[in-house]
């Protein structure tokens, strides 16, 4: 069975005119735009975290055809700032994936780490590891390398692109850095004036 695309069907937020778009499996679609232009709101609407018009579909199944928490487990949003509520990192991971953790620069012992000792960069990379531990069917990435140094950014984005291609999942990636967009994007859209335009 072919993995599903993520489709936006006249999806509109308060800041954005209706968007119809197909995000094919195994591809990275980058989204850029000025701060406050509505990038994060669009991601939140796709994840069904805030009221919106229109709908999003994963293959044949629309948001409203699934229970909200089932939808979010499939179409997973990784926020720019992650929150951690259990004592250790391992308690947050559904099915820890050692390969992903290693690619992100962590050893097996990271599961025992206290979340209190995590730096912002570690939190950001571990949020990615946490998301993939749930085996999502689509990824919504809100500036996933914003807190990382240049070398770690390159390593993280290479792993992310490889993961997306190998697992044949669609990904919508919010980014500001034009160089990064050139490196990772299969397609690139820009939000300006409440409209989404292909770059």
């Amino acid at each position: 069975m072919n993995p599903p695309s993520l489709l936006l069907d006249s999806l509109a937020t308060e800041l954005l005119e209706p968007v119809s778009l197909e995000l094919p499996p195994g591809t990275v679609t980058c989204l850029s735009g000025a701060s406050g232009s509505g990038k994060t709101r669009l991601l939140r609407a796709i994840a069904d975290l805030e009221p919106h018009r229109g709908t999003a579909r994963l293959g044949e199944r629309a948001q409203e055809d699934m229970r909200a928490h089932d939808w979010r487990r499939k179409v997973m949003l990784v926020p720019a700032e992650s929150a951690w509520w259990c004592e250790t990192v391992g308690e947050h991971l559904q099915e820890p994936q050692p390969e992903a953790l290693a690619a992100l620069g962590f050893g097996d012992e990271v599961g025992e780490w206290s979340v209190d000792r995590l730096s912002s960069g570690e939190k950001q990379r571990l949020a990615l590891a946490r998301a993939v531990s749930f085996s999502p069917a689509a990824l919504l990435l809100d500036e996933p390398t914003a807190n990382l140094d240049p070398d770690t950014t390159r390593a993280t984005e290479q792993w992310l692109v490889r993961y997306i291609r190998e697992h044949r999942i669609p990904a919508l990636w919010v980014a500001h850095d034009q160089e990064q967009i050139r490196r990772v994007a299969d397609r690139h859209y820009h939000i300006a004036g409440g409209r989404l335009e292909e770059s």
């Binding site: 994840a47 975290l49 928490h69 089932d70 979010r72 487990r73 499939k74 997973m76 949003l77 990784v78 926020p79 700032e81 992650s82 929150a83 509520w85 946490r130 998301a131 749930f134």
Partner: peptide, 20 residues
């Protein structure tokens, strides 16, 4: 709210996300 929404993003139900 950031913590609760992050739990929702990971597929938790509303009652689980705000359980504590």
């Amino acid at each position: 709210r950031q913590l609760v929404e992050n739990r929702l993003m990971l597929g938790e139900s509303w009652s689980s996300a705000c359980g504590s």
